[in-house]
Amino acid sequence: MSLTLQDIAWHQSVGRLIEQLDRPGFWIALVRLLEQYVPFDSWVALLFSDGRPQVFAECPGVDGGPDPLFKDYLRGLYLLDPFYIASHERNSGGLFRLAEVAPECFEQTDYYQRYFRLNVVADEVQLNVPLEGGRTLCLSLGSRRPFTPEEIALLGLIQPWVAGLMRQRLSFEQELMASPPPPAPAWREQLEAAGQKVENALTARELEVGRLMLSGCSSKEIARKLDISAETVKVHRKHIYSKLGIKSQSELFGLFLKAQEA
């Protein structure tokens, strides 16, 4: 079996990346290599854990500075991210597509309309490397158009190489790896404070139902995830709305956003 010029170029590029593992520009070098094979418009390398995501590197915003929408993501919108939810439900490695992790009603959610559609735009893939302690090292690639089957196949082919490089890079990210992640937002109290004063606080189950609703899960999907009936889900939704003094899922999302600002 003979090597093609493209094969040789790939192996040479990986060799150069290995030499850059201990250098500050590693993540940018990795992204630029991937761009030679698969076009994308945005990217971020981060660590999912029980706290807020920790960012290793990210692409700049439109004006060259930090992306304000991504700041909103780190403050708390990540709790509605299908990739974040999937990483907690099954901490496994590999290449994951948006279509594989997004819930049934994802494109109808306020999260999609007011964040994802504006920040990522159309499609996203994520390369996951599971770590100890339930953490996941992630490289997310966003695109203004759907990734083609050929591009997905190519990313799947090179995914073991990329995952290996990402894992090796952690030896040189000791400062971030050693620091505890910022605590996740305690949005139950904040959500209630942003709504009307209530005598009965949201229960843990109601809070989880509310989060899954906002992430785009249908009543059937929530019932399956929580091992309850769809009718019970509807009862929980009714109680959430009543306790918070709201009448719609959009109002619930509005309170969720206020909670992140608290």
Results as ranks from 00 to 15, higher is better:
residue 95 L to M: 12
residue 27 W to M: 11
residue 189 E to W: 13
residue 76 G to S: 03
residue 180 P to F: 08
residue 50 D to M: 14
residue 89 E to C: 13
residue 257 L to A: 06
residue 184 A to E: 08
residue 98 L to D: 07
residue 165 L to H: 00
residue 32 R to H: 08
residue 83 F to T: 05
residue 260 Q to I: 03
residue 52 R to K: 13
residue 12 Q to I: 03
residue 182 P to Y: 07
residue 10 W to T: 09
residue 46 L to S: 10
residue 220 K to E: 06
residue 196 Q to P: 05
residue 238 K to P: 07
residue 73 Y to A: 09
residue 90 R to Y: 00
residue 126 Q to K: 11
residue 162 V to T: 12
residue 68 P to Q: 02
residue 138 C to E: 04
residue 23 R to Y: 01
residue 24 P to C: 04
residue 129 V to A: 07
residue 121 V to L: 12
residue 127 L to V: 12
residue 231 E to T: 13
residue 163 A to M: 12
residue 182 P to N: 04
residue 108 Q to K: 15
residue 237 R to L: 08
residue 203 T to W: 03
residue 140 S to R: 04
residue 255 L to E: 00
residue 127 L to K: 12
residue 71 K to A: 10
residue 230 A to Q: 14
residue 76 G to N: 02
residue 224 R to G: 00
residue 246 I to W: 00
residue 153 A to M: 09
residue 48 F to Q: 03
residue 102 A to H: 13
residue 50 D to K: 15
residue 72 D to K: 03
residue 124 E to T: 02
residue 112 Y to F: 15
residue 121 V to I: 15
residue 83 F to K: 15
residue 245 G to Y: 00
residue 235 V to H: 15
residue 12 Q to K: 11
residue 58 E to K: 15
residue 27 W to H: 08
residue 211 R to M: 04
residue 86 A to N: 05
residue 232 T to L: 08
residue 42 S to Y: 12
residue 141 L to E: 04
